[in-house]
Simulated assay, not measured.
Amino acid sequence: MRIGVITFPGTLDDVDAARAVRYAGAEPVALWHADRDLQGVDAVIVPGGFSYGDYLRAGAIASMAPIMTEVVAAAGRGTPVLGICNGFQILCEAGLLPGALTRNSGLHFVCRDQRLRVESTATAWTGALSAGQEILVPLKSGEGRFVADAATLERLEGDGRVVFRYAGANPNGAMSAIAGISSADGRVVGLMPHPEHAIDALTGPSQDGLALFRSVLQGAASAA
């Protein structure tokens, strides 16, 4: 399986995401923000960082990059897409996921290892996890507070589209402690914490994050 990893100006975690893809047993493919070619990849990761310096709004400029036109079209055809941190912001700005990510409630950058509760395994990126399971992954963001209007929140909760929720203390004031959500078909997932930094016990707080990358491989294998 070939998984594309996009690089924007200001992206920081593309190398880490590619490493996670390799750890899971897939082939990472570097994708450039200014290109319009997804190179036939089977899935796409929009990684974390500070694309375009977070000017205007975090992810706003990156959402209009040529490569994102192709990502939106591919998602419409069912291609799995994962947005991590800034990638989650980009997916919301591009309209692939509802809601928005705003400044943390304490107006401070939060950098910590964070427990997450798995709320949904009915997505392309969480099939290898168990509902109710808690995983430990790093969180590092200044604009990680998920917000949405009441109708959107009700729809996300009612349709089972809340994928991850902060366990224990809410680190950024996210509504309903939401750390990650999915599209209606479960093929697109965005989350603020960083599973790609929790794939090796030597470098991360756990290996829990590897399950997300293995999930998309398992889903592809079962569909073959």
Rank of each mutant, 00 (worst) to 15 (best):
S176Q: 13
R161T: 05
V147K: 02
D113C: 01
R36M: 15
V72D: 03
L107A: 10
G49S: 09
A74T: 14
A18M: 10
I84E: 07
A26C: 12
Y55G: 09
C85Y: 01
S51E: 04
S183M: 02
L136Q: 04
L136S: 11
L12R: 10
P195Y: 04
A167Y: 12
S183F: 01
G53M: 05
I199R: 01
M192W: 03
T121H: 05
E27F: 01
D149C: 10
E93M: 06
I199S: 00
I181E: 03
W32P: 04
Y23Q: 08
S130Q: 15
A211E: 00
L116G: 10
N172V: 06
Y55N: 09
Y166H: 10
T7R: 15
L191W: 00
F164K: 11
A179I: 05
R103M: 09
A73F: 03
A65G: 13
V29R: 00
S105I: 15
F88Y: 14
P205C: 13
G48R: 02
L97I: 11
D42S: 14
V188P: 06
L156Y: 07
V81G: 09
R19L: 12
R117Y: 06
E134V: 12
A224E: 08
Q114C: 12
L139K: 04
D159L: 12
G142T: 03
S176H: 15
V189H: 04
R2Q: 15
A100P: 07
A201R: 13
A20W: 00
